[in-house]
Design a binder for these strands. Structure first.
Lengths: 253, 253
DNA sequence: CGCGTGCTTGAACATTATCAAACAGTGTGG
DNA sequence: CCACACTGTTTGATAATGTTCAAGCACGCG
């Protein structure tokens, strides 16, 4: 049984953060809401959401919501990357997920937030009250379908990760992680998915993959030495041999 | 890197199963559909589902759906327990979840099923085509809300399990598992949550908790020796000291 | 320049897996 | 009814993966 040696406490920076984020809440309405009639259903849903929400900024290291707080808001990431974290009583930390632009936050929470959400770098978000969000869900029949699909994807991703954490080795976990990041990037901008930006630090990666920092470092060094990846900088990975990385990741049956 | 020594192949029994399950599909409509007007929304949703579905039986060891098959149906467990499993290429197995009466199966799948679903003991289910299910979702505004809630709970449970697999020790995993089973049982029948029935075998527990069979056995023996639980039979656990089991499980922060 | 934080590498250690063997319960056939 | 085989469980001995502890490195910043 592991003994607690170091209970992680939020840094001063992080403590200031929530108040600041809330204070910066009503920066003004987005200015790209156009007339509705010509829009597709999905666009209309998006536009309606925009009108119902306010923009918030969450700066690097700040905490957007705290685990256990009443789940009053639902957020959508506009820019930047955030992480959802949860702590065990003795300080062990676990990173549930990294959130990138387009992701919704808080959909899975009912009464209270299950995770703290913190910004890796400065992040911009849209914020909706749960009530207005649910009102929109009731009003717009397409919205229900859409968010049902969003939940489905999240659930599916969670299941992939359960398999990863439950049955994959450290090397397989890291390889899967790098490939997922590469693919996400490829989805965004055309073809160039060889160079991956890592917005998180080694500690976040470790807590996301259920490993220790040192293991992450060793595995990265090992992949580099075997010329499967290159590490031009601390927050950057270049995939040199995707085929080898894939065989390293030991995919599904 | 683990080397594949034994690729699990479906037993003959399991192979026969799917055809049998499908064949037993249209056993007839349920006979408890009553008049709609006096019902509450939730009841109406349930009644509408009943009319839209057929009953299926899945016998012990049989496979209800196979990973990769087109996700044509959504099921609801009426009786019995089933397991969702996924395999890695080299035969490592991972049990995603145990499904008990009231649970919905296939909600998270879009094109194809992500898991095989197998019956632990004889199971009865309701089966709905995805199209009729989605039609109902569109027709009934309450249904959307309801299944949104179902998905939310599933996602929340998956996240709890990610924490368990990512950051908990073997002993903590088993303790959490036993407590969850005890609580589920307590929810069903009043107060008696001391005696837990284990519908699954040791291998299922191991693959569910990301451990090996031998580890499960050792931990159970250890808990028994420390008088925290008793093991009256192979599929039965009696919780003698819930308090100690809880401290063993190392809850959330 | 020196300090601090986060990263990297090394060595010893611990937990859990693997290999192996014995055991228990159940069903089958003699 | 008992012997036997079969499957699933339990326990033991050994090994390996990943952790822990420890020290050095590198980059950024005052």
């Amino acid at each position: 049984m592991a003994i607690a040696l170091a209970i992680r406490v939020p840094s001063e920076e992080a403590k200031m953060s929530r108040a600041a984020a809330v204070a910066s809440g009503a920066l003004g309405r987005p200015n790209h809401v156009r007339a509705l009639p010509t829009m597709q259903p999905a666009e209309r849903t998006a536009a309606e959401l925009d009108r119902a929400g306010t923009t918030v900024v969450c700066r690097r290291g700040q905490t957007l919501v705290e685990e256990g707080d009443p789940a009053e808001y639902i957020f959508k990431v506009v820019s930047g990357t955030l992480r959802s974290v949860r702590l065990l009583a003795d300080g062990r930390r676990y990173v549930a997920s990294f959130h990138m632009p387009g992701d919704f936050l808080g959909l899975a929470d009912s009464e209270n937030y299950n995770h703290s959400i913190e910004a890796l770098g400065d992040a911009g978000l849209m914020r909706y009250t749960r009530t207005s969000f649910e009102a929109m869900l009731d009003r717009d029949p397409h919205a229900g379908r859409r968010f049902f699909g969003v939940m489905r994807k999240e659930l599916s991703a969670a299941q992939d990760r359960l398999l990863l954490l439950g049955r994959k080795t450290a090397a397989e976990r890291l390889a899967s992680f790098l490939l997922t990041l590469a693919d996400r990037k490829a989805g965004e901008n055309g073809a160039n998915n060889r160079e991956i930006e890592l917005p998180m630090n080694r500690s976040d990666m470790a807590d996301y993959l259920g490993l220790r920092i040192e293991t992450i470092c060793r595995l990265l060094s090992d992949l580099k030495q075997r010329r499967i990846i290159d590490l031009p900088g601390i927050h950057s990975v270049v995939v040199l041999r995707r085929d080898l990385l894939e065989s390293e990741s030991e995919g599904d049956a």
